[in-house]
Write a protein that binds this DNA or RNA. Structure first.
Lengths: 158, 158
DNA sequence: TATAATTTCGAATTTTCTTCGGAAGCGGTA
DNA sequence: TACCGCTTCCGAAGAAAATTCGAAATTATA
């Protein structure tokens, strides 16, 4: 067995759709919604977790409430060869770095960073980014206003 | 009262830290962790929801498992005046658009899009983006590999 | 310090979780 | 069709958790 495909049927997709919208929905409510026995639904959810279709249950917290008002995208160039992604791995270790993408085109990496304010971003760049030798240049774009920010997938009917 | 500040104490922050890591943690476990009565913890959680500190409980689903393998950032310019953000609102309505940020600098918006493949991105641009008249130009950057992608906030101890 | 407001607790009830044996459904095969 | 193996589903039952609420404790405020 090589590919071990993940097959998701209509019921699985419904579970994912509901859980994506509310991770704290009770298994009992899920069962009612799907018109199935709670035990059957539970088994499916466990399987989805096992198969890593469900990656994590998380709580979205208002950044403003925690005083994290600065969001920035940083386009980075790196001197490392194409085979390695050590630069990315180093960046990924930094908690304020929310996203690291290897992108096509001129810039090597697209990095998304969230901090309290511009001062803390500055600090982050001085103390952390500068330690990563392979970074040769950065171009920072500050976000003035976020209109939408979600990670919801479009889940097909079946 | 104008500002109606949101005050979060040490206990609130602990709750948020735990819930951010696992939204399906039971209230009982939460209470054990914090060494408090379940009823007291429950009341705090409800208050955090009310105050919109907790925005949503969500399930992170593997995009690959659902065949959503294409991720792209699109930098857009818009002809609308600075006061309005109708373009952004229109973009936000599109489910495949995960993020819309108004950014400083040359480009007006930074948009993050997730679709099945490049063909569906093309389709999206032809059918949806082109309908938004105010968009004057787009520059699309395709993600080759995502090393990190989370929305976890750095929550202070106290 | 007195008083008001908020937070916490504990107990009791309802609801949910979890487990497991067995039934039902679904291909594949002779 | 009859049989088999596999998966999924169900229902029941005990354990655990959620929820509610009155009272105590704590904290803030006058």
């Amino acid at each position: 067995m090589i590919g071990s495909e993940i097959v998701l049927d209509k019921t699985d997709l419904s579970i994912l759709r509901l859980m994506q919208e509310n991770a704290r929905m009770t298994n009992a409510d899920l069962a009612r919604e799907l018109e199935m026995a709670p035990s059957a639904v539970l088994e499916r959810v466990k399987k989805l977790e096992q198969k890593q279709v469900i990656v994590k249950y998380t709580t979205r917290i208002s950044p403003v409430a925690l005083g994290q008002t600065l969001l920035a995208f940083i386009a980075m160039k790196s001197s490392e060869g194409m085979g390695s992604n050590n630069t990315a791995k180093e960046l990924a270790k930094i908690p304020e770095v929310q996203e690291v993408h290897h992108v096509a085109g001129e810039d090597c990496y697209m990095v998304k960073v969230r901090t309290a304010d511009s001062a803390s971003l500055m600090e982050l760049m001085r103390n952390k980014f500068s330690k990563i030798q392979s970074i040769t240049s950065t171009r920072t774009t500050i976000v003035l206003e976020t209109v939408k920010e979600e990670q919801l997938l479009v889940i097909p009917e079946k």
